[in-house]
Write a protein that binds this DNA or RNA. Structure first.
Lengths: 181, 181
DNA sequence: CTAGACATGTAAGGAGTTACATGATTGG
DNA sequence: CCAATCATGTAACTCCTTACATGTCTAG
């Protein structure tokens, strides 16, 4: 096993909130959990098929317009059970963050390396933009604090991601400042 | 391409510091860059072979004891060039952090979910331990601040990782405190 | 009428993990 | 002498990305 197929649980988690099509699920990876996980439709459609074979989801066919058929997927009771188990068991493996920039940094020998400045500045631009984007998301998804109670997990991870980016930006600024002339 | 083969650059980066065997490289993923990237020997030996075919590394055979042959790999001039290019080009893709715990959190609906407390506590234990481990590493690898000048990148990423874990731990504590009775 | 979004699939290939397989050396 | 470590490889399998392939619907 390359990795313990988390995609299936993400799909179940999304279907647990409401019935969705494969297309809807694919879109969810753009604007919803895209910050935390990625998947393409070429992975999602086969996974839905497998989940259905195993009895964790079912689908009904709906027709929009004249003949366009959509497969609307629903989670089953055993699917809910599987999702609950996944959430309930421990998560002891802290996955190493595979940050390519950090990896490159590792091979910089001295603080006078001529490449260092541009590298740090580029990351500062990128992470500043990402921070702004996440703050925008928080304001959009949870315009009033009240709403956070209904989707607490979503609220938590957005707020967590903002804090993470905020740290990253500050660390970059600090490191840039410490650079020799 | 599933991903742009970063392993080859890590190998080149390590060989750029000193000649190493495949076994040495494998070990480097335990205690050196293990915090930032992982690789098994089953991936490293074939990669070394490919790098040699492409002319980026060469190997000499050394014998320890009676007959145990070791392949000591060296980076070549073109290998150094490739490494330099990789470090020099931009790194515009911020890889989404695939944190399984964060993913599970997303599917928690309310702050009264009975699973939430244990989940947060487990992560607090894990990240507190990791933070302590990283601080230990920093103290071991850079006992005096002077040494940091010689391996600046290594110093930076350790210090960055410590800051990241520190944020994570504080966020967990804060989130735990905000939980209803 | 046409571009862009909606909608669903398959194929090919690289990346990464786990398991299989073998043998030498060193220190207690 | 025996266990742990040193040392190198291959095989099988899953995960994930990119590309190929097809067709419908809606708004301007």
């Amino acid at each position: 096993m390359a990795q313990k197929n988390k995609l299936q649980f993400i799909i179940l988690g999304l279907l647990n909130q409401q019935p969705l099509t494969g297309y809807d699920l694919t879109k969810a990876f753009d604007d919803e959990i895209g910050e935390f996980w990625q998947a393409q439709h070429s992975q999602i459609y086969p996974q839905l098929k497998r989940l259905e074979e195993q009895g964790y989801v079912t689908h009904e066919i709906t027709v929009s317009g004249e003949k366009l058929e959509k497969k609307l997927y629903h989670i089953t009771a055993t699917g809910r059970q599987l999702l609950h188990e996944w959430i309930s068991v421990g998560t002891p493996d802290l996955t190493a963050t595979k940050d390519e920039f950090i990896l490159k940094l590792y091979f910089i020998q001295t603080d006078r390396d001529p490449r260092l400045l541009a590298m740090l500045q580029e990351q500062l631009t990128l992470h500043t933009a990402k921070l702004a984007h996440l703050q925008q998301r928080l304001a959009t998804v949870f315009p009033q604090a009240k709403a956070a109670k209904q989707h607490y997990g979503h609220y938590l991870i957005l707020q967590h991601a903002i804090g993470r980016e905020d740290y990253y930006v500050n660390w970059l600024k600090q490191t840039l400042k410490a650079l020799p002339e």
